[in-house]
Amino acid sequence: MDTTAINHQHEKTENSLFGFWVYLMTDLIMFAALFAAYAVLHNNTFGGPASGQLFNLPFVLAETVILLTSSFSCGLAYLVMQRGEVKKVLSWFTVTFLLGLSFLFMELTEFRRLYASGSGPQHSAFLTSYFTLVGAHGLHIAAGLLWMAVMLLVVRKRGLAPKTNSQLARLALFWHFLDLVWIFIFTIVYLMGVL
């Protein structure tokens, strides 16, 4: 590629990254609405269990550390991608994928435990808003994992091309964003929930 073509590609990547950022900000507003619903409803337990009796904090801390580590490994994947090291990109994204998968698995385990003890989303307004907020984040994680699996296959098959790099940059942005949202779920739902 000559320099004008490279500049053109660079500009396209920057533009699509900005467009993706705008999407993330609208997603953030949706999460804000779910947080507001949770904050309003979290005392409406309808005689059922309150947040302090339900949550297992060390378990949630482990989830948080796993997601944080996956955000870090995703950053490292982005770094090696910029240097064009295909093998390292594959291994760091695989690490990120596995960490993300264990996070999702732990979250589903937590949901199943709540369900089994009769604290499903239908029990009270508090539990409905809890499952909606945390479940919406979990759905985003599941979508991110699907996206990551597809990108792993693409990089494996075709290596790194400017278009692939641009897609990987957006995926990394999405993953860091989900980690940021989780910090507030951890603080507001879980830490403040047991106080």
Binding site: L68, F72, I183
Partner: peptide, 15 residues
């Protein structure tokens, strides 16, 4: 990335 990661872990565990 390393600075971001380590300080995030410290802040999470402190809270």
């Amino acid at each position: 990335y390393l600075i971001g990661f380590i300080s995030s872990i410290i802040l999470t565990i402190t809270a």
